[in-house]
Design a protein around this nucleic acid. Structure first.
Length: 420
RNA sequence: GUGGAUGUAGUUCAGCUGGUUAGAGCGCCAGGUUGUGGCCCUGGAGGCCGUGGGUUCGAGUCCCACCAUUCACCCCA
């Protein structure tokens, strides 16, 4: 019996959850400001959904999915990305019947069978948004703005926005042909995987990192030069809107993304920081996906943001996430009778909205103070037989060391005024 | 999937060319205070030296395999 977490997974321990909660609180604030509502979809879906949605030729579907047959003989797959499930829910619940666009966000674990390394896990977590029902480039710009606002507000520096357009079903075949013609007499200089991509998905050859392929591609035609008029117009206005929002961006004709469903706009937000991984957010437009998954012909746009990478990036940039406060009060009891009384007092004070800690392992008074200190308790109340008899307790401020006496009768009020 | 590095207390790490009871800092517990934390002092608990095999009189140390971690690549968030 292995007692370690499965390869490529990580526990978030109590000492560090506050970092996640901090980031999540920013996500909830910014999605609210932009009008995106949360959607929660299952961690697993029918395998077919991802095969159809994400695309059979992608690495994700071909070799990275966690797929198994359940006891009812269904093929089930753990989400390898966030969009497909949201699209399925959008179609299943006929959200297209509501006023469009429908703007959604999710926080979800994502599973991919990969070789783990820094910022790369078999289970990672993504924050993502999906906006359905608008062909307009303003929604493309809005989601970039949402991602950038969030990241900037968290304090990240040195972010770059890289954008591209990969056309639509009208103009992409034209570019495919141009690219294939260009590559036709250079096939022997491409790597094995690229040669196999030549027929199935030639666009993917563009982002091959092999030196040989890179050399071949230096003079390759750029897709932006072959966009149809509508796609060209869309791409231009997208850029205009980004500028109107005050963003600098870079057109990178090599961004094609590893998911087949993208059309027109694709983008990545990456950190130029050397110590942390590059891409922390990637997304784009998917005008044919809803229809491909069996819904009406409705466009969409969205992105996914890797939370582990975001946290890594914040850490390497030295961004300090505020550590949560300790309890308002620690009650230190001396003796059986006082402890018995203190248990009741702690319960009462918690109901009065004061956070209270108390010893549960029979520590000495000194031990209780040390423990209170470790917990970062703001005040410590000492209760022993003297206090029980007199009805007065001493309350010690742990940061100044000063003690004051107070009556047990109105203790909650006194504490409230101390804690304001 | 390909290539490199690394696995020793809870944690970070020492352990020289194989040699007797495997060490340190931090953390944890207790004591130095009879009812008071942080600092200081003293003591204590805690290790099948990743797992399995091999070489050897003898392995934490050398060899092999496996497992895990980590870095680069592929790909992606």
């Amino acid at each position: 019996m292995a007692i370690n977490a499965p390869r490529g997974t990580k526990d978030v321990l109590p000492d560090e959850v506050y970092k996640w909660q901090y980031v999540e609180s920013f996500i909830r604030r910014w999605t609210a400001l932009f009008g995106y509502k949360e959607i929660r979809t299952p961690v697993f879906e029918h395998t077919e959904l991802f095969q159809r949605g994400v695309g059979d030729t992608t690495d994700i579907v071909q070799k990275e999915m966690y797929t198994f047959v359940d006891k009812g003989n269904r093929s089930i797959t753990l989400k390898p990305e966030g969009t497909a499930g949201v699209v399925r829910a959008y179609i299943e619940h006929k959200l297209y019947a509501e006023a469009q666009p429908i703007k959604l966000y999710y926080l979800s674990p994502i599973f991919r069978y990969e070789r783990p390394q820094a910022g790369r896990l078999r289970e990672h977590h993504q924050f993502g948004v999906e906006a359905f029902g608008s062909y307009g480039p303003s929604i493309d710009a809005e989601i970039v703005d949402l991602a950038m606002s969030l990241l900037n507000n968290l304090g990240l520096k040195g972010l770059e926005i890289h954008i591209n357009s990969i056309g639509c079903k009208q103009c992409r075949p034209v570019y495919h042909k141009v690219l294939m013609d260009y590559l036709a007499d250079r096939l022997d200089r491409l790597c094995d995987t690229c040669r196999s991509r030549y027929d199935k998905n030639p666009l993917r050859i563009l982002d091959c990192k092999e030196k040989g392929c890179q050399a071949v591609l230096t003079d390759a035609p750029d897709i932006v030069d072959y966009l149809c008029d509508d796609c060209k117009k869309h791409f231009d206005s997208f850029q205009d809107y980004l500028s109107a929002m005050g963003y600098k961006y870079e057109i990178d004709p090599r961004i094609v993304r590893g998911l087949d469903y993208y059309t027109r706009t694709v983008f990545e937000i990456l950190s130029t920081d050397e110590r942390s991984p590059g891409t922390i957010c990637g997304g784009g437009r998917y005008d044919d996906l809803v229809e491909q998954c069996g819904g009406p012909s409705i466009p969409g746009a969205g992105f996914g943001m890797g939370l582990e990478r975001l946290l890594l990036c914040m850490d390497s940039q030295g961004i300090i996430i505020p550590v949560p406060k300790g309890p308002d009060l620690f009650i230190a009891a001396v003796g059986e009778q006082a402890y018995h009384y203190s248990i009741g007092l702690a319960s009462m004070l918690r109901k009065r909205d004061i956070s209270v800690e108390i010893d549960h392992v029979a520590r000495s008074l000194k031990g209780q103070f040390k423990y209170a200190d470790k917990l970062k308790a703001q005040y410590v109340l000492v209760i022993g037989s003297d206090e029980m008899a007199s009805g007065h307790v001493s309350c010690k401020n742990m940061s100044t060391g000063q003690e004051q006496r107070m009556e047990l009768d109105n203790i909650a009020e006194r504490l409230h005024s101390l804690l304001h």
